[in-house]
Amino acid sequence: MGSDLTKYLRVEKLPHIWCAGCGHGIVTRAIVKAIDELGLDPVKVTVISGIGCSSRAPGYMNFDTLHTTHGRAIAFATGVKLARPELKVIVITGDGDAAAIGGNHLIHAARRNIDLTVICYNNTIYGMTSGQYSPVTPLGSFASTAPYGMVERPFDLCELVMGAGGTFVARSTTYHARHLTNVIKQAIQHKGFSFVDAFSQCPTYFGRRNNLREALAMLNWYKENAVSREDWAKIPPTERGSKFPIGVFKDEEAPEYCESYRKVIEKAMKEGDAK
């Protein structure tokens, strides 16, 4: 049971451009479901994206939406949020968009603890350009630009954002759709920089080269390899293999950037020679 989520979608813009079996629709649904369950005023929600498969999602979402340049969504979002702090600003990005070309903006927004919610549709591949490796493509897996197997070490995006100072960090997958919705809800409610690493299957360009040709096979892979962070902690590192933790890894309070800057304005207006 639940309310009709199509009111958050630009139904007339469907069908979407994503391939059959792509996980991005599941993540997009989780976002609008979270917005619905939180009862947010859709007029006060702005969704901003960069370039790539994930970044096409805002075009289908019925809010103020901004589809920016490759890697720069968080920087555009910083301008929107600072200009109108009362808006809920959600950034939709992909692993290439967020962690390669846009990596600098990701870590600095996390460091500032600006109140943005960044949801990374993480399919470990450049899908839009048909399957080149990204900074999170697992070691040894194959991509169109890693025909002999991936030899670069991948980022753990949650560790990266936590290291940079993000105050809410979580991971989920498209198999765990209810869990994904819940962590997105928590991320949106969090005051400060929040990051959700949403694993999303790409059977077409990742799976095809890595013995996971079917979407179902990829979802089953998530099911079998995702473990709660509590269970993860109990597995000796040498026995972790392909398993990965999901859940909320960090949820801390720290001064939020827009609020800190509001105090700067108050101070300057009081002390300065404002005209």
Binding site: T46, I48, L66, T68, T69, R72, A75, F76, A77, T78, G79, V80, K81, L82, A83, R84, L87, N104, H105, H108
Partner: peptide, 17 residues
Amino acid sequence: MEDEIASMAAICGASLA
């Protein structure tokens, strides 16, 4: 901002707001 590119992006965002 963290770089020149981000500065240009941020002013676009602020203007749209």
